[in-house]
Computed example of a mutant assay.
Amino acid sequence: MSVTVPAPWSQSRPLPPYRALLAVDAKDFTGLPSVLHAPVSELIPELVDRALEKAELKDLRDAKRFPASTGDGIVFGFDPIHLPYVLWPFLPVLDEILGQYNSSEVGPRIRLRASVHVGPVPDADAPGDGNGTPRNDTHRLLDSRQVKAMLANASEQTTHVVAILSNRVYEDAVIGGYTQLHPDRCTEVPATVDGKNFAQRAWLYVPSPSGNLLSAGVPAREELKEAPSADSADAAVGAPAASATPGVPPAATYHRNSQEVRDGSAALMGGVGGDFNFTGRSTTHRAANQHWGSGDNVSGSKHVGGGAEDDR
């Protein structure tokens, strides 16, 4: 057998080179008539290259590492020295290029999700280059329901690209100040993929948010809120949901649970729906939807009815 499979943790070995990774994926590609699949698959790399050229990243355009088509998108690696420029100006320019295309062509509208990540992957001009956990995570981020929901909620007339950045990219390039993309343009989300064991902190960036996103508060909280799986619901008892917007305190979310209060007090805050049973010295209070601005103090056991669907 010509391929040697290494045994993890059996010995120390050189770390593969760090590579940044960019993946893009077209919205509603599978819903297109079959006759359009091949030409749209060819069009997406062309639009990406056009945006790289306009963003003055010709060197990157010509130096992609392990590029691959995904049918409805593309993925490639590149030297992370270019990473700050991919975040800005490339992503805004890609949005602009798509906007121009969508307004001038009679074909199907092309709207893209993009994910950006960085990490160690093989890159030795050999089969298997680019494969590894960082590449897997790049695709998971691209498929996360948070970035899909954002693009679906946005107006197709205004928002042509929604990007999701891994936390490593955000910390190294954005928080580090190496890119023109300001942290205030990014929104933290708990990136999750339905049916996959994947959950990571990530950051959404919308180059051209449509008015409905702005009026609702980017992002649409109910669409982007992480929904815990059934086997993790008990672990989420009393845990606050991650804040969807930097600087805004998170709201507490309760899922099919009861909170035991023996000594001290419990404060119930925020908008809540369902029935509330307070046992002990308190009585039962039934209501449809109530909002507490400062909280109620209770003793005994507090039972909160309704699941995640009732919280909305």
Rank of each mutant, 00 (worst) to 15 (best):
Y101W: 10
G217Y: 12
L60T: 03
K58R: 00
A252S: 01
N297P: 10
A220E: 10
V121L: 10
N102I: 07
N197H: 14
E42C: 08
G238Q: 05
T179I: 05
Q146E: 15
G264A: 11
A235H: 01
I97V: 12
K58V: 03
S104L: 04
N297V: 00
P219M: 04
L60A: 08
P219G: 05
K64N: 06
R256V: 00
V248I: 14
Y205V: 11
L21M: 04
R13L: 07
E156I: 06
D184K: 15
R111L: 13
P122N: 03
Y205I: 01
L47A: 08
G295A: 05
L57W: 03
L268C: 06
R286D: 15
P134Y: 14
L52A: 03
F29V: 02
N167F: 15
A114H: 07
Y178D: 06
T284N: 13
P207G: 04
P8L: 01
V3Q: 04
D129I: 05
H303F: 13
A252G: 03
T158V: 04
M1I: 01
L22D: 10
S103I: 07
W9V: 01
A216L: 05
L268Y: 15
S12Y: 12
E260R: 14
D59L: 00
I110E: 03
V298T: 08
E260S: 05
D62Y: 09
E105C: 14
D194Q: 11
